[in-house]
Simulated assay, not measured.
Amino acid sequence: MEKRSITTFAGNPVTLLGKEIKVGDKAPEFVALRGDLSPFTLKDVEGKVKLISIVPSVDTGVCELQTIRFNQEASKLNDVAIITISCDLPFAQARFCGAKGIENAIVVSDYKDTTFGLNYGFLIEEFRLLNRGIVVIDKDDVVRYVEYVSEVTDHPDYDKALEAAKSL
Rank of each mutant, 00 (worst) to 15 (best):
A92C: 07
V62F: 14
S57D: 05
E151P: 04
L162I: 02
V45N: 01
I82E: 05
T115G: 00
D140G: 13
G47C: 00
F30I: 10
Y111K: 13
V14T: 12
L33D: 01
P156G: 04
K3C: 08
N119G: 08
L17I: 03
D141P: 08
A10S: 13
E147T: 02
T67V: 01
V108S: 01
I102A: 06
K3A: 07
P13A: 08
N104S: 07
D79L: 01
Y158M: 04
A99F: 07
L65V: 12
T67S: 00
A165Y: 02
K166M: 08
S75Y: 05
T15K: 03
R95K: 08
C63D: 09
L37S: 03
V58Q: 05
K139L: 02
V143R: 02
F116H: 04
K3S: 07
I102Q: 02
L37M: 11
R69N: 09
E73V: 01
G101I: 11
L65G: 09
K22L: 09
D110H: 00
E163T: 09
D113F: 14
P13E: 13
R128K: 14
A164H: 09
Y148Q: 01
A94T: 15
E163G: 02
S150K: 15
A74T: 01
K166H: 05
N12Y: 10
V62G: 10
I82L: 13
V149A: 03
I83Q: 00
I85R: 00
V14P: 04
C97G: 04
L17R: 00
V146R: 11
K160W: 08
E103A: 13
D44P: 02
L33K: 04
V108Q: 02
V143F: 01
F40K: 03
Y145D: 02
V143G: 02
F127T: 15
F9S: 14
Q72S: 11
I85Q: 00
P156D: 03
L65K: 13
K100A: 15
G101P: 03
E73A: 07
D138Q: 10
E2V: 14
Y120P: 04
K112L: 12
A10P: 06
R69I: 00
V142M: 14
E2W: 05
H155A: 07
I68K: 13
T153H: 10
D159E: 15
